[in-house]
Write a protein that binds this DNA or RNA. Structure first.
Lengths: 175, 175
DNA sequence: GTTTTTACGTCAGCCATGTTGACTTTTATC
DNA sequence: GATAAAAGTCAACATGGCTGACGTAAAAAC
């Protein structure tokens, strides 16, 4: 175990180490979302809109139920977000080719512009952290983070070049 | 850069790598907070109460303004959380010894019990991820996460045994 | 071809948690 | 004694979760 400075009381270190991890998550997430939240506020949107914009940008043609599975919120909540984003011209819908019940979602040009603006900042933050920490640390970061993520969503992170396939079946549609 | 499988298009990999990091954060945070959120709901509390309980448990005797700096919310928001937690017997206040304007906060026995219940789950999740990933990966995880955290809060994570000293001065009290 | 299931939507209302702005009380400090 | 700081309070508002109930259209099953 990474042999830390003095003392070496493994029990204490373990407890302390785990607490530090909890705090790392809290602080990193807090700081990771700060700037995007400010940008979103100018449009009258919130963090939830960002998540929708992000995943629709990431997987153009994604369906509502796939989005629901990723976000793990209720369809009523998602519906509110989506209808705002459609109404204001950031997302457009079109019926699925095989299954015409589906609404396939994609960003409009305006939506792509906002997406870029939002993620630019986050990419910069991460790129800086990656650069500082070095390639080996990045690999470790990936491994630890993956271990905390629910099984069904891990496949997104297989080293690959194509688009993600959004995992297994649905899991809590309306509850 | 950790030499990934095929292709090796560094530009694509970079973009893809950064997007993956964003998603790792999103999914890990989502799954990290799921169980505690359920426990809190049984008490009529939310995630914000958890953060207060956590930091008060972590730094007994912490003052309101120190908490405000950590959480970066307004004192009105914090005040609502605190008064609920005090009213329901999870936190108790006592005036500061030197400065009697301060309310020094600490968990009651009931508060400590809830804190343990909440963090037990998160510790288990992290411990499992740490174990799977290995000591070296853990070190990398720390380094990357630290790089994303605002300067003033990094000192909390210096390798040490004592209690954290809650960083620099205040930063947005009521705005 | 009728029935059932699925994908999606909608209305109404509740709660938690963030916000702003204005004002008060208590205590330290200059 | 005046000023500043730590904390609290009241009021009002927005976002984004939630539940429950109901509706519609298309696909799938019988």
């Amino acid at each position: 175990m990474a042999d830390v400075k003095t003392g070496y009381n493994p029990l204490f270190l373990r407890e302390e180490e785990l607490r530090q991890a909890m705090e790392l998550l809290f602080f990193a997430y807090r700081d990771f979302t700060r700037v995007p939240d400010q940008i979103l506020a100018k449009h009258g949107f919130g963090r939830a809109h960002h998540r929708v914009i992000y995943f629709v940008g990431r997987e153009p043609g994604i369906t509502v139920s796939e989005l629901l599975r990723l976000l793990q919120i209720t369809k009523q909540s998602l519906s509110r977000l989506l209808s705002q984003l459609v109404r204001e011209g950031f997302i457009q819908q079109s019926p699925g080719a095989q299954d015409r019940r589906q609404r396939r979602l994609e960003l409009t040009e305006q939506g792509r512009a906002l997406e870029r603006e939002l993620s630019e900042n986050q990419r910069r933050l991460i790129a800086a952290a990656y650069r500082e920490a070095g390639a080996e640390a990045v690999e470790g970061f990936r491994r630890v983070m993956l271990g905390m993520i629910e099984e069904g969503d891990r496949r997104r992170f297989d080293r690959r070049e194509g688009q993600p396939e959004s995992g297994a079946g649905p899991r809590r549609l309306t509850r």
